[in-house]
Nucleic acid binder design. Structure first.
Lengths: 346, 346
DNA sequence: CCTCAATGGAAAACCCTTTTCTCAATATTG
DNA sequence: CAATATTGAGAAAAGGGTTTTCCATTGAGG
């Protein structure tokens, strides 16, 4: 650690032979001066490695160039991609992000929230692990704007979620497209709004009679569901769309244990594109990606607009999911053909 | 969003009928005044919901009450627990944490670092996914203190790592203790320092002839290693210590496929205690936990001490790992007996 | 010579807390 | 009963570096 003297705008001004006022205006592209002066100041600043002190800047601009990200997602399954997107959208603007993990503890949430408000954050992004649950803290009367990403907020809030129905549609249509006829959806607990949305879209494509099985979000449930389907007398499916990648992994493992070929006999699609699960499955999972990083980027852009006082339409924005092809689904020939068609169209 | 006027110390002073100077002193337990006055001011502040503006405070105290956490761990496997610990240690002191994910991009790292320095962070914690690799940015001549946690730093730095050798020793000793005789260590690439440390400790306990197999950090390698061990003519092990939980999962799955009972015939121990892997394995993995959260807490405490100018001894601090018992290892009776003994001793 | 535009500078504003210094009032001492 | 010490509390400045406002200077054109 070296207590190097920081270069101040005063130094830049002195070296460039102008006043601090002119230096400031030169660097911020405001005020009036010859291009030559502006260029010289900028050059000097660059040469000296001048970087404006954000704290001093905050004084005059009423902005701290910091935002807070509040999450109750301990594993980071959803938060990390969102965070990465948020950061990416903001770092270029010199905005840094406070990350606060609050688990489901209201007191802890309050503590973090207060600490951030004390630091005059320009805005807060609330994010969670479930789009139909709220964080254990009320963010609706804060002195700063709030964007909700992948968590529920008040009706008049700016909220970003992934489009579960569209994602489920993509998956189901893909199964149909590669020739699977008997489709089943093995998914999470009915109480989740996203489960209902996905199941609804699945039925809309697969036919109202298509079977939907609900259970916990676990590999074990994937196993159990396959046991239920294969050990009974009912006709067996040849296409299985799972509510998340963990269930899908359980399903694939269970099928392999029964010597059912994936994707030869049965095609399986997951949901989440959680690399760590999807890539380790044998064969690797074709799955739906929720584009959480893009969701984060959008959240970053929105909170920035709000912080700058730009108008932002409140309401729920659904961002599209996309199908990620690996090997658990087969139909590669069709996949290639379709991609070629898409290329030709564009 | 409600632009509620923030309560300033001026307001507290007015309501309490004292000057701002007195109010400040009352709230900070400095200066001289009657207990009655101090109490009245504090009560007023609480009643009005006064919270000091951290930015103004930073002006006089030369501290921003923020620290930065720099990481290149995209999945958050290591970062998230560390981050949780750091936060936990700091939030009570009113310190907030900037999280910056820099992947392995030096330019991005620089960008984040500059943004944080501009905001006058009181210190920086560098963290990574590997203790023998450095972040792609030089942190050795910054105007603020740095603590390295789970990543390599300069020799004269304050560095925190988990004690790989001790963790491996715990695991191997446990296998020996429950009666396993033929031990094998299936682990990651030799190039990792932690792999060497763990392998060394394994050999020290299991005997110099005990086999160590190196491969990638994947489930697939776990499978492949079992194939190698079981398909050859060599005597088969009855205790397997794995370099991480993913390998261990591959091992357990491969053994099940060969109808080898875990833990009946073979005991398996993992490393990392990555819930999402360890708990989903059938049977759930007994594994070594690196206490990353505690490591984060310690990093938080250290950076705080450094920020306050307290002396901190430089060097590498190794924090102990601990064995987490689940079902892949068996020896439950022994486990219970030992725990009872420990209870009696304490 | 006057006016105007262009350029650049001096100084205030920005924000709110903490700290220093001072003073009055009371207590203590010789 | 002075003279000194102690206590309680307030006024004002410091703390920080940038941005912004407004004014001064210069040179050109009328």
């Amino acid at each position: 650690m070296v207590k190097a003297e920081r270069i101040r705008i005063y130094d830049v001004a002195r070296v460039a032979g102008v006043s601090v006022a002119t230096a400031s205006k030169a660097l911020n592209d405001t005020g009036r001066m010859t291009e030559e002066t502006r260029r010289r100041v900028k050059q000097t600043a660059a040469a000296l490695g001048f970087r404006p002190n954000a704290m001093a800047r905050a004084l005059t601009q009423q902005r701290s160039f910091t935002i807070g990200l509040l999450t109750n997602d301990t594993y980071g399954r959803f938060t990390l991609p969102v965070m990465a997107g948020v950061s990416e959208a903001l770092v270029d603007q010199g905005v840094s992000v406070f990350l606060c993990g609050i688990e489901d503890d209201a007191a802890l949430a309050r503590l973090h929230l207060d600490a951030m408000l004390d630091k005059q954050v320009d805005g807060i992004i609330a994010t969670g692990k479930r789009i139909d649950r709220r964080l254990p803290v009320d963010l609706s009367h804060l002195p700063v704007p709030v964007v909700y990403a992948f968590t529920e907020g008040p009706d008049d809030a700016v909220t970003l979620v992934s489009d579960d129905a569209q994602g489920a549609r993509e998956a189901t249509q893909w199964l149909a497209q590669i020739g699977r006829k008997a489709l089943v959806h093995i998914t999470g607990p009915e109480s989740f709004v996203s489960v209902a949305a996905r199941a609804g879209a699945f039925r809309a494509v697969a036919g109202r009679g298509a079977q939907v099985l609900h259970g916990p979000w676990s590999e074990a449930w994937g196993h159990a569901a396959i046991a239920k389907l294969w050990d009974g007398d009912a006709p067996r499916p040849d296409g299985i769309f799972c509510g998340n990648d963990q269930i899908a992994r359980g399903v694939v493992d269970a099928l392999r244990e029964r010597n059912v070929e994936v994707p030869g006999d049965v095609s399986v699609i997951g949901f989440d594109n959680w690399e760590i699960v999807a890539a380790a499955t044998r064969p690797p999972l074709t799955t739906i990606d929720m584009n959480l990083k893009e969701l984060g980027r959008e959240a970053g852009r929105l909170i920035l607009d709000l912080a700058e006082g730009k108008p932002v339409e409140p309401g729920i924005r659904k961002l599209p999911c996309k199908l990620v092809l690996r090997q658990s689904c087969g139909g590669d020939a069709i996949a290639v053909r379709n991609q070629e068609e898409m290329l030709q169209e564009s």
